[in-house]
């Protein structure tokens, strides 16, 4: 039942996007988000959409996977959309009872909904085509300059990759514990909020016990391998740019230049 969680999920496939350096993908995603939040005319929207469709095609990931993440924010989208639609002052278009829709409201609601959907789809493409390990490696390397001002970049990224690595383990563990307790007649679904919260105890106690045990074992295993932080540590797969990555950087720079040219012209 937990197999539907898609946060940070990786979809194994062979594609141009999968073989790109994670730093390129992080940079491109950042640029994409900037363009997404600064457009306000239809021509730019068309350009962003075309770029997004091209990337989707390049990723070789089924489209269904990308929009899975949208289900979770559906309620948020509808509420935010409704607020924008009904509560923005401007020239009134339609009005009934206490609600009225203005031209500005309609435009804001539309733009906001598009932004949210594009944001989720765009960032999902990044996580779907990049393994969590590549992602943290990319972050560690890109943010390496922060080390100079005393921020422990390596330690933070190590913590991130351990946390990411443990998500599937803990999900699997939760699944097993739920099964074991369901086999003893536990019921996690029916009843009011208090009954449901109480039903969580037989699930959470074994889960916490096992999480602490795993953390202890991992710390011991790391120490046994003489882990002592980032200084002097080498990588098994050091990140290196290929010609594909250089071309990708050129494409994203062209994309940003064209995007701002269009903005300046209109």
């Amino acid at each position: 039942m937990f197999r539907e969680i898609t946060i940070g999920q990786y979809y194994p496939a062979e594609s141009t996007l999968h073989s790109l350096d994670p730093r390129v993908k992080l940079f491109s995603t950042l640029m994409y988000i900037i363009s997404l939040f600064s457009f306000d005319d239809p021509v730019s929207l068309v350009m962003i959409t075309v770029a997004l469709i091209c990337v989707i095609k390049l990723s070789h990931v089924p489209f269904g996977f990308m929009i899975k993440g949208l289900k979770g924010i559906m309620v948020l989208l509808i509420i935010a959309g409704a607020f924008n639609l009904f509560l923005t002052p401007g020239k009134e278009l339609v009005s009934f009872w206490i609600f009225s829709i203005s031209d500005v409201g309609l435009k804001n609601a539309g733009i906001m909904t598009i932004r949210m959907i594009y944001l989720i789809v765009g960032t999902s493409i990044m996580t779907l085509t990049t393994t969590p390990n590549q992602l943290t490696d990319g972050l560690e390397k890109s943010l390496g300059f922060l080390k100079r001002i005393g921020i422990p970049v390596h330690e933070i990224s190590m913590m991130m990759s351990i946390a990411l690595r443990f998500i599937p383990i803990l999900i699997e563990e939760t699944d097993k514990i739920m099964k074991a307790q369901t086999a003893r007649g536990a019921d996690f679904e029916s009843g009011g909020i208090i009954k449901k919260a109480k039903a969580m105890v037989p699930l959470l106690v074994p889960l916490f016990v096992s999480a602490f045990r795993r953390a202890n074992d991992l710390a011991l295993a790391m120490e046994a391998r003489c882990y002592n932080g980032g200084t002097g540590r080498t990588k098994m797969k050091p990140l290196a740019y290929s010609s594909l990555d250089q071309r990708a950087y050129i494409v994203i720079v062209i994309y940003m230049v064209v995007f701002y040219l269009i903005k300046a012209v209109i």
Binding site: K176, I177, Q181, A183, R184, G185, V201, P202, V205, S210
Partner: peptide, 28 residues
């Protein structure tokens, strides 16, 4: 059905949670 067909899983750590053994056995 689940009380008719009892299932014991591989790891006891997945089901023990109460403060005492006796109370834990009472859970079913």
């Amino acid at each position: 059905l689940r009380t008719q067909v009892g299932m014991v899983f591989q790891y006891p750590e997945h089901q023990l949670f109460e403060t005492t053994v006796f109370e834990d056995v009472c859970f079913g």
